[in-house]
């Protein structure tokens, strides 16, 4: 589904943020990307739907080359859902309007169709009552669930999560993770940048560990948590699992 091969990316002439990254996510697979901050994991996931350009290598998404100038990027992006650290709901639109905007403007669905789809997804994330509120009137956890629903409204073939729980208060993390776990169980293809190792050990198929722009480890979940091969991954794990 997602094929990342030999991707190199620089900021400016000298600062390399991604170094020869190669990996893939198969259909229905859940891959967790972790690593210390500044390791390039958010950058990598943003390269997948071309939110960030990269200079070398290639990424192929459902058979379509992302970094081909001929690719219709808006059309391709519409097929991949993305969830951001800071939710990024549109503050001037009601919750239901947030869910409808891209359905109508990008997919060309009628307003009625879009609203019906939006309401169904709000029910799924348990926020039916909030449909007519504005984002600023919701808690962080609720906003992030809306953001997931907004991405799902586009009927995506895969979902990208960029630290979806990092900006949340601890008591709100589980309500978001629950939605993500359900999605994973339904067979959604997911690439998730997160520090939630509980989530990783519960639903991930594979774990990718990144450090200083490199993919240091790309292993099955059991291998990664059981016996990480690299010293850097061992150190990282011992640090975040020590509490």
């Amino acid at each position: 589904m997602i094929e990342i091969s030999h991707v190199n990316k620089w900021y400016g002439p000298t600062f390399q943020v991604l170094k020869d990254c190669t990996t893939s996510v198969a259909k229905g697979e859940v891959v967790v990307v972790c690593g210390p901050s500044g390791s390039g994991k958010s950058t990598l996931i943003k390269c997948v739907n071309a939110l960030e350009p990269f200079q070398e290598g290639q990424i192929i998404l459902d058979g379509i080359k992302v970094n081909d100038p001929k690719t219709d990027l808006p059309k391709l992006r519409a097929r991949v859902g993305m969830v951001f650290q800071h939710f990024e709901l549109f503050p001037h639109l009601r919750i239901i309007e947030n869910l409808c905007l891209a359905q109508e403007k990008v997919l060309g669905r009628s307003h009625g169709e879009a609203v019906a789809k939006g309401e169904k997804l709000l029910e799924r994330v348990g926020l039916t009552v909030q449909a007519n509120k504005y984002p600023a009137e919701l808690s962080g956890g609720q906003q992030q669930r809306v953001a997931i629903a907004r991405a799902l409204a586009m009927d995506p073939i895969a979902m990208l999560f960029d630290e979806p729980t990092s900006a949340l208060d601890p008591e709100m993390i589980s309500e978001v993770l629950d939605v993500m776990v359900d999605l994973a169980h339904e067979g959604m293809t997911m690439m998730v940048v997160t520090h939630e190792m509980g989530f990783a050990s519960k639903v991930a198929n594979r774990v990718i560990f990144m450090d200083r722009g490199e993919i240091v480890e790309d292993a099955l979940k059991t291998d990664f948590f059981g016996s990480p091969r690299s010293e850097r991954a061992q150190k990282f794990l011992s640090k975040i699992l020590s509490h």
């Binding site: 943003k46 739907n49 939110l51 808006p74 059309k75 992006r77 519409a78 097929r79 991949v80 993305m82 951001f84 650290q85 800071h86 990024e88 709901l89 549109f90 905007l101 891209a102 403007k105 990008v106 997919l107 907004r150 991405a151 586009m154």
Partner: peptide, 21 residues
Amino acid sequence: PRGQKQAATALGLTTAQGYRY
């Protein structure tokens, strides 16, 4: 926030639509 434009882009909105809506 920079993420607003990214969110619009990620949903498949074109640059013009992102500005407009």
